[in-house]
């Protein structure tokens, strides 16, 4: 269901930004079906909302028309298919979809599900794992977000550039 639509996305132009927003919305729906309501929430807000707005404002700052590349794509196609083949080979050993006895389901997850509410008093296990059991992880992720914000600020704030140009003209004047 996701695949069929994803193929359409290879059209050029600004429409891809809208298509990727649609793609995110579909992903969010898929996450609900897969019982990941928290993730679906984040994906709907982030992917369908913020990313699209950022993409469109970036396109408004640059050119929105794509020049078609002239080189042939055969090598890339062969490479992609070869990688897919390797992945299909690797995947054939993995446990079936929805298997409750899969190794991923048996390691720490039952401990979280049984004890999380008792230990933290919070019914949403995702929140308690996020903030308590794996708090250090989340701290790291938050640092990444902060760093990205600072990076964008440094790259994009017009003031920085203006000040530097100002200084250059001052130096020229003297």
């Amino acid at each position: 269901m996701v695949v069929a639509f994803a193929i359409i996305r290879r059209r050029s132009l600004i429409a891809t930004a809208m298509l990727s927003s649609f793609f995110s919305l579909l992903m969010a729906g898929t996450f609900v079906l897969l019982d990941a309501v928290d993730v679906a929430f984040a994906e709907a807000a982030v992917g369908a909302g913020i990313t699209t707005v950022l993409m469109l404002s970036a396109l408004a700052l640059t050119s929105s028309v794509e020049v078609q590349p002239l080189k042939s794509n055969w090598l890339a196609l062969v490479l992609t298919i070869a990688t897919a083949g390797v992945l299909f080979y690797g995947v054939s050993d993995l446990p079936a979809f929805g298997d409750a006895a899969a190794p991923a389901q048996r390691h720490v997850a039952p401990r979280y599900l049984e004890m999380a509410e008792f230990e933290t008093g919070i019914p949403n296990v995702v929140t308690s794992v996020l903030a308590s059991y794996r708090g250090f992880d989340t701290f790291g992720e938050l640092t990444v977000v902060l760093t990205a914000g600072i990076g964008v600020m440094l790259l994009m704030t017009p003031g920085v550039r203006r000040r530097r140009n100002q200084k250059e003209t001052d130096e020229d004047a003297t």
Binding site: A104, A109, L113, V125, V126, L130
Partner: peptide, 10 residues
């Protein structure tokens, strides 16, 4: 399993 949800959320 809540663990992958946490990882992907962040």
């Amino acid at each position: 399993n809540p663990l992958p949800h946490v990882l992907i959320l962040t």
